[in-house]
Structure formats: C-alpha cells, structure tokens
Design a protein around this nucleic acid. Sequence first.
DNA 1: TTGAAAGCGATACCAA
DNA 2: TTGGTATCGCTTTCAA
Lengths: 339, 339
Amino acid sequence: MNDVAAAAGVALKTVSRVVNNEPGVNASTAERVHAAIESLGYRRNDGARTLRRGRTASIGLVIEDVADPFYSGLSRAVEDIALAEGCLVFTGSSGEDPARERELVLAFCARRVDGLIIVPAGTDHDYLTPEVEAGIAAVFADRPPGAGPDADTVVCDNAGGARTGTEHLLAHGHRRIAFLADAPSIFTAAERLRGYREALAAAGLPYDEGLVAMGRPDQARVLADLRRLLRLADPPTALFTGNGQITVATLRALAGTAGPVPTRQAPPSAGPVAIVGFDDFEPADLLGITVIEQDPVGMGRAAAELLFRRLSGESGPPQRLELPTRLVVRGSGERRPLP
Amino acid sequence: MNDVAAAAGVALKTVSRVVNNEPGVNASTAERVHAAIESLGYRRNDGARTLRRGRTASIGLVIEDVADPFYSGLSRAVEDIALAEGCLVFTGSSGEDPARERELVLAFCARRVDGLIIVPAGTDHDYLTPEVEAGIAAVFADRPPGAGPDADTVVCDNAGGARTGTEHLLAHGHRRIAFLADAPSIFTAAERLRGYREALAAAGLPYDEGLVAMGRPDQARVLADLRRLLRLADPPTALFTGNGQITVATLRALAGTAGPVPTRQAPPSAGPVAIVGFDDFEPADLLGITVIEQDPVGMGRAAAELLFRRLSGESGPPQRLELPTRLVVRGSGERRPLP
DNA sequence: TTGAAAGCGATACCAA
DNA sequence: TTGGTATCGCTTTCAA
C-alpha cells in the first residue's frame, strides 16, 4: 500500500480511502491510485486490516467429519450464509475426539474468528469460557454443550423422532423391536434411546436391554451385534437404527458384503425383518428404506443465522432451537412380522 | 501481551520468548510469565503474529460442493494433512460457478493464505497469475486449470476408467451403450467421453451421437434423457453413467420415484438394462452397481502433499499426477443383453 | 479533499 | 539471559 501511495504520488491514507471506497476522494486522484494499484498488482492484506479493525470476518466450524453426508450438508449451509455475510469459514473435523475438538476450537480462537459453530465431540466445554468472555460468539449444533458456557444451541427432536419411528413399527404389529445406535455417551443416541423407550412404555411393552445395541457405528460392531440379536431365542422382528451410518451398516450386514437386495433377504432365523432408520440418506429411496428424516441443511442454516444475529449485536439469553423430524414411509418399515 | 509483560514485570520480548518456547529464558522468569498468562487468560493473537512473520499457516480449499460425497472425502483428506502441518483450512464451495470460484480464491488470497487447492469451476485462471507470482502456491485437483498459471495438478485417469468400463460392457455382449454424463465443458466429462469413444473404436463399433446425453447432473435432465434413449428405435442395452450423482439419478429414473429395486426392474422397452457407473458411491454395493472407482481421499492427500512440498520450498516444473481407477464388479454391469 | 502520526499485537534484530 | 526499538500493512484520529 505504501508502494501504491508512492507510485501514485499521494499519501498512504488516500490509497486506503480509495481501496475502501470511502467518500471524499477527488475522482482524478482516485483514478491515479487505481492505475497504480493495477500496475503494481496490489491487493489489500486483509490480515493487517483485521488486526487494526478488530473483526476478522471469519468464523470457525467444527464438525464431527466433513466426509459424513449429514455434516457436509450442514457445512454447506453454514458456508453459504457466511459467504453472504462477507465471512470466510475455517472448517475442521473433530472425528469425535474431544481433544481434537478443543485443539481446533482454540486454534480458531487464536486466529480471532468472530464466531464459532461447534458440533461438540466432548462433554466438557469449560475451555471455551474464557474465549466466550473475550467476545467470541459460539453456537452449538446437533448436540448441546456439556459443562461450559451457556450458548445458543440447535438440535433436532431426537426423542420425538425415535418415538415416532418406534410407534410406526408398533403400529405394524411388531412387539420385539431392536434398537441399534451410537454409543449412549453421544447426546443424539441417548435422546433417541429415550424416545424408543417412551414409545414402548406408552404401548405397555417392557424394555428389554437385550434388544439394545449401542456403540461405534462401524461395520464390524454392527455386524456382531446384529448376529447376536438375530440369534436370540426370541429375536426381534423389527430394527430401529439410530443414524444413517448404522442404517447402512445394518443393511450391509443383512445383505452379506456385496449381496443383492438386502431388505428383501430374510435373515434365516427371523423372517423378513422390518427396518426404520433415523436420518435420511442419499439413496434410501432406492433401497425403499423408511426413515425418520431430519434436515441437516436447515440445522446449518439455523445455527449460522443464530450466530450472525449475535455478531450483529443481539443480546438476550441463549436460545435453544429444536427442529422437527418427519417420518418418510418407503416400505421397509411397513413389513409385518410373520404370524 | 503487553499486559502480560507488565504483570510479570518483564519485557514484551521475554513474554514472546516464553509463548513461543524459545530457548534462553530463565526457568523462574518463564514461571512468572506463565503465571501472568494464566491469570490474565491471555492467548496469542495469531493474526498479528502472521502479519509479522509473513506466513499465515493457513490454506484455502475451493471445491465444487462440500455436500457432494466425492468432494467431502477429498476435503477431509486435505484437512487432515493440513492440521498435521499445523495449518488451518478455509473451505469454500464454488457450486460450479466460475465467478464464485474467483471470488473465493481472491478472498483467500487477500487473507494471504500460504497456498490454495482448487477444483476449478471455470476455464480461465488468468486472475490467479498475479497471486502466484506474489508467492501463493496453488495446486489444482480433479481438473486441470484452464488458461492461467501452470501449476501442480492431480487428476484421475478419467479416459482410462471410462474405457475400462465401456470395454467391460462390450465384453458382456453389449453393442448399444449409452453414455450419460456431465456437460462436456467439464474436463472430467470430456475425458470420460473420450475413453468411451476409444473403447467403441477399438471394438470396431461406430460412435452414435444419439446414444450420448451430457448436461446438468440433476434428476429432471437425466430422466428426460433416459426417456429419450429408451424410446429409440434401437435402444441401448447398457448405460455408462459418468459420475456418482448421475448414476444415482439414473437408478432413480429407472425405478420411478420411490420404487423398490431399480436395477431389477426392466424398463418396459429395453429389457434389463446393464449399468456401469463412474465413481463409487456409498451404498453402491447394496444396490449391486458395478462401478469404476476412483479415490477422492487419495486425491485430496496427493494434492495436499504436493502443496506442502511446494510450501517447504521445493521448486521444479509443475507436476501432473494421474491417479489410477479400478473396476469394481457388483452385478449391474454383467447383465447380458436380451438375445 | 488530503495528509501525518499513532497504534493494532505480535516478531526480529541488535544491544546490553 | 534479557530488553529496546523498528516493523509487518493497514485503519483511525486529528490536523491542515
């Protein structure tokens, strides 16, 4: 910028005025400055600008894994809103590791992002308190924060969705419904379990722990649990799967590795098992899988809107938004148990 | 940092030394400084640091759409390597819009990112030349840059993969193979078309433009094109679909909106149509779809490694990496035409 | 309408 | 081992 000023024969400040379209610059002076900018290939250094102005016009987004379609949808929504607000987005995946979440968040804070959108991996967010006190706005998405500052939060109606899905299976005559999900330490999984239990209780059915399998969402774990479930003396006739990954892993387990159409194949011991999954996933319609759909894009948008509202000065107590879910009927959840 | 220095009763520079773990500080002095840092809740401002040091320890990643599983896999790989290198990542989706690509890239450059990984949406990258000359390293992924600076590039063997896929269908007796893909203005689509044509030519078959349908990857376009193809007097007995999105859209079109198992359903006029798709997609195994698999994670990793090699000073002419593809046989590509 | 000087929060170089 | 001072590139404040 100094060079530009020298080349144009004006003061530094005048160049600054031109670059920022500030009023009060003679047209001919501005012209000279523009010419100098052009010939020197000058670009403003936003880092320096930021340092002086206090706001970095950037936000940090920490999710579990960008490569998961749920979070990538959320991510895209956040990105779009941020861009519209003239903000850039640092993105980081925690991989469900609290230490990495913390590391990312603190790195973003060191860059003095204006705000954060966090899908918490851990349950302890005390490390955020000083940052929030220092003026960094934070919004939690998908899961509420654990211990730590009270902040705006957007979640979906996990319990309600699971209740609806379970009720749907009950309405189709099932009495032995297995529940496969993430580890109960994860908020969404715990909430969905609650919804499942509520539905059973409302129907006057006992809660059988032997029908519940929670843990890591990988193929091996799901396969092992499914084997156990289907070999029970009184096996389930229906499955409620607690998220998209687990639904796919379940279908894969039922099908054999690269088998043909899984939901058509009856596991030998159990008759054609009915399935309802939490989360819609890309070709669930092709597979005919009945799901409880939530809206990752809507969640990202809601979180970003909350954040930017705070950034533009809105105060008031932290808000908690709960987005609705929707049952999408496609066939797999409407199969009745064998008589 | 000034406050910390005052509180600890030392000079600014000493605090800087402690914060950066520089050698040559008395243990007891360091102790005092740490105490002051703790009690003031001080965090280094990386923006200021960056301004002084010249390197921002951040890179920019511009892809077509984070929400597309192909790019989100790539994105995650880039993120992981960047984090390991102590670098943060600005992510932006261009949505296949050259203007938005440019806007994002220039915004990243204004923040003085150390490097860029770009999946080009446009074909004109002249706007990058001054930035590259100013010292910002750039690597192109998935598609080579158009006009503009010559830079490192990572692509996959698009033509080879399409050739293999087409040959596979030819080997199973098909002579009328349709080609559905992205618009030919997109590098990958043009290359895949080339591979398809090469395979036909090698088999001594004519190239029939009526069997080629290229354009936007949305459901409506694919449905319309598919209708046209299957109503031809001499309809195709096999389809080669040019990317994951189009494969899914095709399956959906063949199935009817939420129909059951699409690949089992014969379109009325054409017999059971065979399908090979470019790109693996999450439950392609469940659907039994034969695909040409490429490796988005490998591509992201390769691009990031190239970039960081440049950032650590490696010079030499721009490299061009071409990653291999692999045929994955699952059933849909091995159906023979009706006699 | 234009400019000079101070300062944002750190690091680098040289001196003590 | 420690400190002073210039400086990174820009904005802000105040004066001309």
